[in-house]
Design a binder for these strands. Sequence first.
DNA 1: GATAGGGATTCCAGTCACTGTAAGGTCAAG
DNA 2: CTTGACCTTACAGTGACTGGAATCCCTATC
Lengths: 128, 128
Amino acid sequence: MNISDVARETGLPPKTIRYYEDIGLIRPLRDTNGYRVFRQSDSHKLAFLGRARALGFSIEDCRKLMALYEDQDRASSDVKKLAQEHLAQIEEKIAQLQSMQATLQHLVRECAGDARPDCPILRDLAEG
Amino acid sequence: MNISDVARETGLPPKTIRYYEDIGLIRPLRDTNGYRVFRQSDSHKLAFLGRARALGFSIEDCRKLMALYEDQDRASSDVKKLAQEHLAQIEEKIAQLQSMQATLQHLVRECAGDARPDCPILRDLAEG
DNA sequence: GATAGGGATTCCAGTCACTGTAAGGTCAAG
DNA sequence: CTTGACCTTACAGTGACTGGAATCCCTATC
């Protein structure tokens, strides 16, 4: 498979696939013309990476997850730990965003949003 | 005021304050020795920026908000529009994170998290 | 054989909002 | 005069790509 084939299979852009090779997440073969040659196992790994990234795991977490995936003797507790830590980060992020959301919703409701210059949003930003 | 004074006043790191000058958000004066000299109005602007950033506004949005703040003839509708657009982005981000959270919570609950290699989290990442 | 196109390659720069580090200048206290 | 805290600039790095330029390869058509 060439890069555009595996891009279609996995939904990842060719650029991203090259980047993943650059940082050592995958190691496709090379044809005599220099083109990358992807085996089914490469495509599989890329799909794995795509799903892990879609769940918000960092590249370094993805690297660890791949290593665990390929380690037949892994303990599921190691995977669970990674997932739980990531979950905690997601929950913190959600909480932060919800706090911003609440403040903004309040300010937006207060603001007349008309042609006059008086604006509670700016007042709040200016005075805290 | 020197940079560390205004840093204390605003809660922003000196590095960030220099950066904000670099990108033209503030224009502090300069002493004969080359040190930045911050007026109360600079400190005020920086505090404004800090609060806008804490609400998740991008630097470019902050620039617009500052311009609106300094424009005595602004229409509050311009501010409200910016805030509402930002709010929509925050809400989208929250929804994305909540979707990740739901999937991860499900997977974490399914995973025994013991010494055995069998792991629903990896299985899901591998098979989608 | 020339050419046109579509796809592949590499490398470099840019994104966003800082943050770290190095090398050096300035100031007040002892 | 030295020490140490402060200030300055300039450059590199972060994360995870993304865009663009220059060049190479393959296939098909004339």
